[in-house]
């Protein structure tokens, strides 16, 4: 039974660990903190699997847990807002290319800055839709809103993003 859980967990971890880490890194702008939240997220998954709780959508579950852990992180760190941290050059997140593994080009940084400049309502739906390729239904579950509301936020966020980037011209 436990071997089966181990196998399932390994499979889920291999599939979604990078996405969860990326989501956390973009939100908290600190690589070590992102790793901690990622670890905690998968620990919750591990506990859930041991309790033999049926998960209908592993990815949505992981993003939901990560989303809540990030909220908890900022609640504990009340004095520093995400916007402030992102706007501070000294606290910008460690780029993957600094670890020598992945190149993080100027376009990526540009798009990320534009996504982060979106209003908070649209920031996460746009990111989850276009970077993590989640469906509006999954985004709705993660943000605890309806799929329709998620879809509306994605479209409005995309319009705002295009205005900011000028790509729609």
């Amino acid at each position: 039974m436990e071997d089966n859980i181990n196998y399932t967990f390994k499979k889920i971890y291999a599939l979604h660990s990078d996405g969860i880490f990326r989501f956390c890194l973009v939100r908290v702008s600190n690589r070590e903190q992102a790793l901690d939240i990622t670890q905690e997220t998968f620990l919750r998954l591990w506990q859930t699997l041991l309790e033999e709780t049926e998960l209908k959508n592993n990815r949505a579950f992981l993003f939901t847990v990560a989303h809540h852990l990030i909220i908890d992180y900022y609640r504990k760190k009340k004095s520093l807002s995400l916007d402030k941290m992102l706007g501070d050059d000294n606290t910008s997140f460690d780029l993957p290319d600094e670890k020598g593994n992945v190149e993080f080009g100027a376009e990526g940084r540009f798009v990320l800055n534009k996504i982060n400049s979106l209003s908070p309502t649209y920031r996460e739906p746009v990111y989850l839709r276009f970077v993590e390729d989640l469906s509006p239904e999954e985004i709705g579950k993660i943000l605890d809103i309806s799929a329709n509301a998620a879809s509306v936020r994605i479209n409005r966020g995309l319009e705002e993003l295009r205005k900011n980037t000028g790509y729609n011209t």
């Binding site: 880490f21 990326r22 992945v102 990526g108 940084r109 798009v111 990320l112």
Partner: peptide
């Protein structure tokens, strides 16, 4: 840019 973002691992 989005592809670059996806390369964050």
């Amino acid at each position: 840019g989005i592809e670059n973002l996806k390369k964050i691992t």
